[in-house]
Design a protein around this nucleic acid. Structure first.
Length: 205
DNA sequence: CAGTCGATGTACT
DNA sequence: GTACATCGACTGG
């Protein structure tokens, strides 16, 4: 209920067309918004990873522009959705200017509104944090797939609503998860101790 | 609890 | 052929 009393201010392109690492850090605590079959689904972003074509061998964009990663090269403020492991989708927020292949992967979200819909889309997991504590789980819970690749984050179908900045002390930094190349880069940011962060156990069961 | 492993489609070597 | 920005089921302690 706390969130329902705020007036939603959907972040505009100026938020996204900046340094990818800055956008990644500042996305923590913001509210991801999704309109799905007449329902509103929202959740607080608690874990992200940055990817950039320069100096990052793990970024899809590091090989240059291709059909699959084309959206990464668009101007900041679009949704980049990709299919992986033959069955999962993951979603990113495109950053920086047109022609730069950079994005921020959303890996952890704390559900706020539309939780019943998320439960149904996820097949009713037993543990509450299994709803959205991973990039592919998030896409399933929010009904994100191929059709959403390239959508503008303008609040029509998807968007991110502003929220007060998170205290620096709450933000943890680490290397990214599930990659082999460029794994030394400390480009993963998350809210320390939050149960919806992928991996790492919830504080209290 | 941690560790292992199969599923299953697609892009790239 | 192989790797893949993952997940869930299964094992053993």
């Amino acid at each position: 209920m706390p969130f329902a009393f705020y007036v939603m201010t959907i972040l505009d392109p100026t938020f996204y067309t900046r340094s990818t690492l800055s956008v990644a850090r500042e996305m923590l605590g913001k509210i991801f918004f999704r309109r799905y079959e007449g329902e509103t689904l929202t959740g607080r972003i608690v874990e992200v990873e940055a990817y950039h074509e320069e100096g990052d061998e793990a970024a899809h964009s590091c090989i240059g522009r291709r059909a699959r990663n084309a959206v990464m090269f668009r101007a900041g403020g679009h949704l980049y959705v990709y299919f992986t492991y033959g069955m999962h989708f993951c979603m990113n927020v495109v950053t920086e200017g047109e022609g730069v292949g950079a994005a921020v992967l959303i890996r952890g979200i704390e559900p706020l509104e539309g939780i019943d819909v998320m439960r149904r889309l996820r097949g009713y997991p037993r543990r509450e944090y299994d709803l959205t504590n991973g990039p592919a789980k998030i896409c399933q819970a929010f009904g994100i797939g191929r059709a959403e690749n390239g959508l503008p984050l303008d609040g029509t179908l998807v968007g991110i609503a502003d929220a007060p900045p998170v205290a620096r002390k709450r933000i943890a930094v680490s290397s990214r998860i599930g990659i082999t190349r460029s794994r030394e880069l400390p480009w993963r940011f998350y809210l320390s101790g939050n149960p919806w962060v992928s991996r790492g156990r919830p504080s209290h069961p």
